[in-house]
């Protein structure tokens, strides 16, 4: 894990999450904007997966349990993708809120992943 990349990722997920919940509460259907945020969050998670596969090979090792870390990461990848498909099928404002909930959940999980990587065993 790279600290600034993780921070950036949490920032994007929180921004996208709050934006989607606010727009959903205003009655907006899933839009290119809210979908794009979820897409970027998913993409960044896949980059994070690549970073954390490469990290231990180049000396960037987690202080905590890598096994626990991957359970969080793999679960997190499913959230924005799942919410995105939900939003494609169900074109209601509730889907916009769900996009937001999924991104906020990803932010919490990333925070927890950061704890496992940087703090847990240190």
């Amino acid at each position: 894990m790279i600290d600034w990349f993780t921070a950036l990722q949490i920032g994007v997920a929180v921004t996208g999450g709050i934006l989607a919940i606010v727009l959903g509460a205003l009655g907006r259907r899933p839009s290119d904007l809210t979908m794009a945020f979820a897409g970027v969050v998913a993409l960044l998670l896949i980059v994070q997966l690549a970073v954390t596969i490469a990290g231990p090979l180049t000396g960037n090792t987690p202080t905590g349990s890598l096994f626990e870390f991957y359970i969080y990461l793999i679960s997190a990848i499913f959230l924005p993708i799942g919410a995105g498909f939900w939003a494609l099928i169900d074109r209601s404002r509730w889907s916009t809120i769900i996009l937001g909930v999924a991104q906020l959940a990803v932010a919490v999980m990333l925070y927890r992943m950061g704890q496992i990587w940087f703090i847990q065993g240190a």
Binding site: F67, S75, G82, A102
Partner: peptide, 25 residues
């Protein structure tokens, strides 16, 4: 109700992942 279901899905996933780790490790 869809929000309720979505939050339940997230929580079910979180509980399952954590529990799996705890049972195994």
């Amino acid at each position: 109700g869809r929000i309720l279901i979505a939050v339940y899905l997230v929580l079910a996933l979180a509980a399952l992942g954590r529990s799996f780790y705890q049972l195994v490790a």
